[in-house]
Design a protein around this nucleic acid. Structure first.
Lengths: 339, 339
DNA sequence: CATAGTATTGGGAACGTTCCCAAAAATGTT
DNA sequence: AACATTTTTGGGAACGTTCCCAATACTATG
């Protein structure tokens, strides 16, 4: 980087020592006279001094920087959570940057390496990996946004996924839909089946519907995933007789599916019911508007920041979970079927 | 951060010096025997050593980290540019993080402070400020995405904004729209009038239409901005007689306006024509689908990364501009009017 | 075997802060 | 004025790397 002034030069101009300058800058570690403060401030201004936070971080073992790592940067759900977390973290003197994984494990690993190399004081993540043990082994304060089946060992914030999923499914059922499919992102084998999928299996069992794995679509929770979902759905022989509704793992997926269905001449909310999760702003404005479970993103983001700050302050505290209820937003994408 | 092993401990276990370990890690600065390499690699593995990049950066004056700072993280236009830049920068050994300003100057200033304090080797930005001189005074390699009226002093990448704006306006005109408004984001006074606005003024003058500043709406290029645009528009006395089309500064704004118009019972593409800029994925799937000027985001992102890497390598090279042509995507949001 | 040339290695210093401890200065008390 | 106490300050060391230069080891040649 550009050669610039150091604390030694500020000290020289102010006529004090580098320690006095440091005390003025950090406003900690002992007293400083009024006169010294004024001289240092004037010197900083005259020289245009900016503190080198690499050096400060090396000595103080602190970076004042947090990484918020999200799987889909263009999904407003994540960017709103990131904004809410950023507000709270900045209030405590941290800077927040965002890392985008695009659901790609190798990209996530690269951010993990960055964190392990001392770049951030902590991370707020929604990880591609379900390996909570590996995350904890990094030795960095981490808060997971969104429940995982095995997440009792890590600070977790989010919506009660099982309850929210059930809420959506109950709505589909109450409106007369009986052949309900699910489209979500499953990361691993049966051990790591997503909570949405578990809630779906439980619900269908409770309703007396035989398990049918051909109704479970595994796609990325992205626009691409929505288009793939529709391709897969339409590829099923006699799909109209087999599926009358789809539960989608998030709104991005649901909205992309609505649009892809329209391109295929199929009317969402008429020929097929869909529900999403999240209630991103676009959900209210698609045609038809999307029925979805709204998650309190500002609360989730703020809670994630709170848990991270607490974890940074006390790395040994037991993991905590903060789950918020979802709220069903009833709109036009679910058909009222008369049985 | 968590206490962890240092290069000294690796050296001790491997039976070599810290300089030899450093040579193995960085694969630079002289030769290392095969035997020494093997011993060091084994020690790194056994100890689980991770290089401290704060210390490395302090000494080497290099951070291997780039900040991509965008004004609206949830706008796929920006996230796609960020992804394309990230691909190219990671290929050169850099890590990429994203900063989101939400069009807020104080947030941008905070990222600028972070950069000045030595946290990044460079920045790819679309800034809130138009003060190119202040940006250059930071002494950090910066590439600006998107033209500014006064951007000859900074590396710039983007679409030819004046030509792209004119293309959109010509299409509106060719379809018979005569009372065209503009909605864009103007940051400052007349000196910093946006290029879109200049292109609009030039076009209307060329078409012999008297200047009418009440047809120029200054809004944020965001969903909120789209709703505000529609509120302002509908607040105009006899607006239906005064405006038959709106040129929108980006797709987020245009799509939000389409949705807000629908909420107000007004049919975009029938009662009012709209065009956007960018051609984000949603543009093809709104109802009606949005006519817009497509910008080559992958090319822009990759070019931004190329220019940044060149700037990092040679800070004194003269600023460069790379502008790409836009492509008009004709869809359903522009009315065919018969005069 | 001796000498010259090349390869490899180790250690000190540097990067620019913060922290800690001892010294100096200022203030209060007798 | 002298002494005790408190406040303020300065300087060395530390943080953990990389870089550079001199020393050592190895190889080639006569």
């Amino acid at each position: 980087m550009k050669s610039k002034t150091s604390i030694i030069e500020v000290a020289r101009l102010a006529g004090v020592s580098k320690s006095t300058v440091s005390r003025v800058i950090t406003e900690s570690g002992g007293s400083v006279s009024r006169r010294a403060q004024e001289k240092v401030a004037a010197a900083i201004k005259e020289l245009g001094y900016t503190r080198n936070t690499l050096a400060a971080g090396l000595r103080a073992q602190k970076t004042w920087m947090v990484l918020v790592m999200v799987p889909d940067i263009a999904n407003p759900y994540w960017s709103e959570i990131a904004r809410a977390a950023q507000d709270r973290l900045e209030a405590e003197g941290n800077s927040v940057v965002v890392g985008n994984t695009d659901w790609v494990k190798s990209r996530e690993d690269r951010y993990f390496e960055l964190a392990k190399s001392g770049r951030f004081d902590g991370m707020v993540i929604n990880s591609v990996t379900d390996d909570i043990e590996a995350i904890n082994d990094m030795g960095i304060p981490v808060v997971m946004v969104g429940e995982r089946a095995e997440s009792q060992d890590i600070d977790t914030v989010g919506t009660d996924t099982m309850a929210a999923t059930r809420m959506a499914l109950e709505h589909l059922w109450a409106r007369g839909n009986r052949r309900i499919a699910i489209a979500t992102s499953d990361h691993g084998g049966e051990r790591f089946l997503s909570l949405r999928r578990r809630a779906y299996d439980d619900f269908m069992k409770d309703m007396g519907v035989p398990a049918d794995s051909s109704l479970a679509f595994s796609v990325k929770l992205s626009e691409e995933g929505g288009r793939e979902l529709v391709r897969s759905l339409l590829a099923l022989d006699g799909w109209r007789d087999r599926i009358d509704a789809v539960f989608c793992g998030n709104d991005i997926l649901a909205i992309a599916a609505i649009n892809a269905l329209r391109d295929a001449g199929i009317v969402a909310g008429k020929d097929l019911s869909l529900v999403g999760m999240d209630d991103i702003p676009a959900a209210a404005h698609t045609f038809p508007a999307l029925t979805t479970v709204r998650k309190p993103r500002a609360l989730i983001g703020a809670a994630a920041a709170e848990l991270l700050l607490a974890r940074i302050r006390d790395p040994e505290r037991p993991p905590e979970r903060r789950l918020f209820p979802g709220e069903l937003m009833v709109r036009g994408s679910v058909t009222e079927r008369h049985i």
